[in-house]
Design a binder for these strands. Structure first.
Length: 318
DNA sequence: CATTCGTGGGG
DNA sequence: TCCCCAAGAAT
């Protein structure tokens, strides 16, 4: 495979790889979760919304919000007809509200440029706001059966272990990983489709980042990481800073704005303490004590178009 | 290429 | 309790 020597070189379609295909696909058919966006008859819009929500957010937290969005906005036009503020409110506490902003913008673009039909090609999808390499490949594959090369964090981890013999993939995706994923993917269209979702599911349920369930793995015998004696990661992931960051304050401000239909005076953020979660309460105390950070965080939200400044306060964008 | 950007459940 | 990190994208 590209950029790699060793036992897997030039043997992508060897019997071993075909056996891996069969084992992981079979495992998937027996063990996959019954997720609503995977059910029969689900269209591009449903898959697209799920993919946006699943960007850096666990499935269990997405499920109820996705159900509500599908009930309320069954088509892109339905969301596009609503002001951005409604999308931000319905996004709730999923996190990264810019995803809701970009999904709303994508719905508008689909409505105006594609007559309300989610585009089927990876290229067209990739041009939509909030759609990167992974999401474009995922929608094309899962919704429309395109044999795209899907590379998400789960697939990267499975490939790093199974084929690379490493505990974890590199911190940031490399071109060589895409090349390897393309190389080990079945040529057949339907087979590639099943393979993509199967490897992803294996990574989500068995080949997890922490304490992988190797005793339940269908390709334990083929795994290069197991064969190498399960070596430890060659780097230490650097944690995501949170306490005292602008992100925390931005989240607190957004939590307040979501609960108001009218502009909220900046000096009255603290008046809503009673209705906030503990996390928001803590963040709001910071809003009070560190005005410079509050101003910086608010400026960021205004710049990002997630909040609007009026004469009488701050509100969500309409 | 490194940073920034939310949230909350589980190890 | 604390820390990890989860179907990433944009800059």
């Amino acid at each position: 495979m590209a950029g790699e020597s060793g036992p897997w070189s030039l043997v992508s379609y060897s019997s071993v790889v075909q056996q891996i295909h069969h084992r992981i696909n079979h495992w998937y058919l027996q063990n996959s979760r019954d997720l609503p966006w995977r059910r029969e008859g689900v269209g591009g819009w449903e898959v697209m919304v799920s993919e946006f929500m699943l960007q850096q957010t666990p499935v269990v937290r997405v499920l109820p919000v996705w159900e509500e969005w599908m009930r309320r906005w069954p088509r892109p036009q339905d969301l596009a007809a609503e002001p951005l503020s409604e999308a931000l409110k319905a996004w709730g506490r999923l996190g990264y509200p810019r995803r809701a902003q970009r999904l709303h913008a994508a719905a508008v673009e689909i409505t105006t440029e594609y007559n309300g039909e989610v585009p089927r090609t990876e290229e067209a999808l990739r041009a939509l706001p909030g759609v990167g390499d992974y999401t474009a490949a995922a929608i094309a594959c899962f919704a429309f059966g395109e044999p795209t090369v899907v590379v998400d964090t789960n697939i990267r981890r499975v490939h790093a272990r199974l084929f690379g013999g490493m505990a974890l993939p590199e911190p940031s995706p490399r071109a060589s990983e895409f090349a390897r994923a393309k190389d080990v993917q079945p040529a057949d269209r339907a087979a590639a489709n099943l393979w993509n979702v199967s490897v992803m599911e294996l990574g989500a349920l068995v080949c997890t980042a922490r304490s992988p369930k190797c005793d339940a793995c269908p390709v334990f015998e083929q795994c290069a990481w197991i064969a190498a004696g399960q070596p430890a990661p060659h780097y230490t992931p650097k944690g995501q800073a949170w306490k005292g960051t602008d992100r925390q304050v931005r989240g607190a401000i957004m939590a307040v704005l979501r609960e108001h239909d009218h502009p909220v005076p900046q000096d009255s953020f603290l008046s809503d303490l009673g209705r906030q979660s503990h996390a928001t309460y803590v963040a709001l105390e910071k809003l009070q004590s560190e005005s410079s950070q509050r101003e910086r965080a608010l400026a960021g939200l205004l710049k990002d178009g997630l909040a609007v400044l009026e004469d009488d306060g701050v509100r969500l964008p309409s």
